[in-house]
């Protein structure tokens, strides 16, 4: 690889390491595994950089991270059991002991984190790619390697589960 390509790789691909790491954290649910996979994926991206056609570099890197994560899981025989979702203690809504905003936010984060972690792998990845990484259906389809119709149905089923887990039910429609 010549100096120009290397600089282009550093400029185009390496700025997305935080996103790559975030995806790996969600897919592997372990920070050390995620670090190893992101490093492996980065080197693989460098090897295949010739094949990168100049589209969205972030989606391209995320696809490699996803593939490396799957391989890693198989190799490590990480069991695919989902983390059981435990209902957290209900937050009181009475004014008398209303928790301050920061506490509510923290517990909201924990609730959401737990709900995402409890999703089966194929649902969790589309939710993370959509809600955390903000990819379009087409980009998600490219990353996961499925048609857009499949992306839509997985996303719909994932959101239905999340709505139940997070106890969201809009009573009144405006």
């Amino acid at each position: 690889m010549n100096e120009g390509d290397l600089q282009r790789f550093e400029r185009v691909v390496l700025p997305h390491l935080d996103d790559a790491y975030t995806l790996a954290r969600y897919l592997l649910r372990d920070e050390h595994d995620a670090q190893d996979v992101v490093q492996e994926a980065s080197l693989r991206a460098l090897r295949y950089f010739d094949g990168y056609s100049g589209g969205d570099a972030r989606a391209w890197l995320l696809a490699i991270v996803r593939n490396c994560s799957l391989t890693w899981r198989k190799r490590r025989r990480v069991d695919d059991r989902t983390v059981p979702f435990e209902d957290t203690a209900p937050i009181s809504t009475s004014d008398a002991d209303a928790p301050d905003a920061a506490v509510v936010h923290a517990s909201e984060q924990a609730r959401v984190q737990q709900a995402i972690a409890s999703l089966p792998d194929e649902f969790r990845e589309v939710i993370v790619l959509r809600e955390v990484q903000d990819l379009s259906y087409r980009e998600i389809g490219d990353v996961v390697g499925v048609p857009i119709g499949t992306v839509m149905s997985r996303l719909a089923r994932a959101r239905k589960r999340l709505a139940v887990l997070l106890q969201i039910d809009a009573r009144e429609a405006s």
Partner: peptide
């Protein structure tokens, strides 16, 4: 709820 609360690492 999910997009506002999900962790970004």
């Amino acid at each position: 709820l999910v997009s506002e609360n999900a962790m970004r690492y």
